[in-house]
Design a protein around this nucleic acid. Structure first.
Lengths: 200, 200
DNA sequence: AGGCTATGTTGACACTGTCAAGATAAAACT
DNA sequence: AGTTTTATCTTGACAGTGTCAACATAGCCT
């Protein structure tokens, strides 16, 4: 990919670290992700990363930010498929949401886990990318309410919180292997969609 | 409380460790819970705990097991309030569930977080206490289906997974401070309950 | 009394995040 | 051009972690 001559200054350590981190994240999970290993991956000393990220949390936030931006694009793409009926799109969104989480458990864990959000530890960079995602959930909810798929007598924000909460909860139960296994994804998603769209 | 003379053998180190752990858990969270500190709390050397717990994960599992057993009692108590209508009990269960999570965020995180469930790491002791809780959720769901509060055309297991998923998701969003703050608990719970019991 | 077993001890190891102080290169300024 | 400032990277160090191995003590059983 980028083969820069070995110099004292790395050249683009920041993105090199992020790439290494994304790789390790997907392969070994967020828990076994250490700055020192990332530095080694990038062929640099243990403390070099600190010139690009305030601390470990900041690096994780940066990865999560990328995740949110990807997520937002994917959600938009599904939501804006005009050729499909709103009902179909809703079902698809539910399946895609849970599917994304199950296919990228470590990234999902990072994005929506306590690690980076706890104690308001989230970087403002992270918030700038994540909040539009939250907002988009509300936008979609309003749309589905207007189309009569979701109850109209509920506040859109609350309803968005609850519907997202449901998807989030299902995703987490599946990922953490608590209460369900992945062979039931489809059925669980459809059950949730049916529940939301009762008698519609 | 328990003032045993200082002897070479502690006497009841196992429960002393569990108590210390529960205290530290509630006060400082699961992340800053170290075996060495617990040993110090109990007035014992760093490696003494290993004679009572296989490893850190086993100790955490033991605390979680206690949490599940408490949780099960509480759920039963609410569910069996015969003087209240099923509908009322359902609403109350929703509020209690989320309320418990918000009031005991660290314990909830431990019980339903990835720490102890990941990679099928759960002790069989833990599973023995936790699985009945999961089962109870299904039992309650069946009851509410029979009472006409929840859709009868859904498989009880799926529906239980989805309803629990919803409560779990809401709880997590609140705890992790991702998408909602605790001033909206009541409204979110009621919105969820309304959603489940549409047109009932 | 003797020995077995449960329980406790210190020592050691590899690993972690992070700070401080110094080295080097590149960029900016005069 | 030369000089200075700034960005980047280095080694050294520290406190903290889980966990293993080897050894010490004490209680229990025969």
């Amino acid at each position: 990919m980028t083969s820069v001559a070995q110099t004292y200054h790395h050249g683009d350590l920041r993105t090199a670290l992020l790439h290494a981190a994304a790789k390790r994240l997907a392969e070994h999970g967020v828990d076994s992700l250490s700055l020192r290993k990332l530095a080694e991956d990038a062929g640099v000393s243990r403390t070099a990363p600190y010139h690009h990220f305030k601390d470990k949390s900041a690096l994780l936030s940066a990865i999560a930010a990328k995740g949110f931006s990807d997520w937002h694009s994917a959600a938009k793409r599904i939501f804006e498929q005009d050729e499909k009926s709103p009902k179909e799109r809703f079902r698809e969104f539910v399946r895609e949401y849970v599917g994304y989480a199950v296919d990228n458990p470590e990234m999902y864990e990072l994005m929506f886990g306590r690690t980076i959000w706890q104690n308001n530890a989230a970087t403002s960079d992270l918030k700038d990318v994540a909040f539009p995602c939250f907002q988009f959930q509300v936008t979609m909810t309003k749309f589905w309410q207007e189309k009569g798929l979701l109850p109209n007598n509920q506040d859109a924000l609350r309803l968005a919180q609850v519907t997202w909460g449901t998807l989030h909860g299902i995703a987490r139960l599946l990922i953490d292997g608590i209460y369900a296994d992945s062979s039931h994804i489809q059925e669980m998603c459809d059950c949730a969609a049916d529940l939301f769209m009762q008698q519609k």
